[in-house]
Amino acid sequence: MADQFIDRLRTLNRYVAYAVGVLLLACAAFVLADIVLRQLGSSFGGTDEISGYVMAIATSWGMAYALLELGHVRIDLIRSKVAAKGRAMFDLLSMTVMSATIVLIAVKCWPVVARSIKNSSTANTPLETPLVWVQAPWFAGWVWFALMSCLLTLAALVLVVQGKLAESERRIGAFGEQDLL
């Protein structure tokens, strides 16, 4: 049950990661086109500004994928020395602290968006990008990360309570699947 649920989250976030990757590729193509255009004496202008926005949005939306693939680096010097039950406790603690932190971050990201809405802020550049256009998707990415993190923690807690320690380690352990084989 809980493990199937986590697998669903993984599949879902793999699609999100594909989308993020396509966004990054599109950005690379855009920058490249501008480099070529400049040689021809013209320019889109503002490629660096747009790459910044792409980076912020790609980062926030990719975080949950990295989490589900056990990509976020953990130091397991002590953790690796204890028995399976102990490792599960380490993992649950780590996930709980992480979820709480990410929720706090997501909450504190809101005032940034709220300020842009209130002031109708635009970038201090010739593009005059309305900041809410780029900050809203960025903020949504952090909310998504917070949500995924909490769901994963709950599902893993269920696994541990059910005594499925190997299952739990596979989903919230210190290293990704391919690394454990």
Binding site: G21, V22, A58, T59, G62
Partner: peptide, 10 residues
Amino acid sequence: ILGTVKVTCM
């Protein structure tokens, strides 16, 4: 792409 997103976000 998947590898890139994972490492970048890490």
